[in-house]
Amino acid sequence: MAYDKFTILKSTAVPLPIENVDTDQIIPARFLKATERVGFGDNLFRDWRYNTDGTPKTDFVLNNPTYKGKILLGGKNFGSGSSREHAAWAIYDYGFRAVVSSFFADIFRGNCLNIGVLPVQISPAFLENIFTEVHKNPETEIEIDLKAQTITLLATGEKESFDISSYKKDNMMNGFDDIDYLQNMKSEIQEFAAQLPI
């Protein structure tokens, strides 16, 4: 599925300073019943965001109009648990293009990269500083430059670089996905399959 190209993202951020946020929180299982990829943003963080009667929980950050933007700031070990790609879809569909944390769970990170959400892993100290600045001033902007692989807290000028494989970076900058690549090596795949032991 095609997604928007990612180059430079300059945005305010939504802070969620909780550790081990698992994908069951990002999108609970009962909202996985769709057979199409639509509407998942409405149920992003459903049980933290809404009471059982459907009214918004005012103390949850997504319901606080002070905080907005295309960057989600998460605590350590973000995206653990279930492999559901729906978690990444919900984040994208809600309007986030990047998640910043000091540590990501593997499958979640891969899912994000496959659908056009950039996972930016930074040091715990830098993450702490960003949380502090954003809490102090919600208008604080953060700049993520994918080409340069840097993230800058504009209020203080503090900057860090982050890792991404050159292959995935290329994909994200061009809006490509892996199937385009794999489709082009079909005969190589078929030859390979023919010589396997089982």
Partner: peptide, 23 residues
């Protein structure tokens, strides 16, 4: 054996391969 996301399910259906860095 490991879990994958839906984009990867599509990859495997289409090409019997996925792309993964070696852990």
């Amino acid at each position: 054996a490991f879990g994958i996301g839906t984009s990867e399910v599509e990859m495997v259906l289409a090409t019997q391969c996925i792309m993964q860095p070696k852990p």
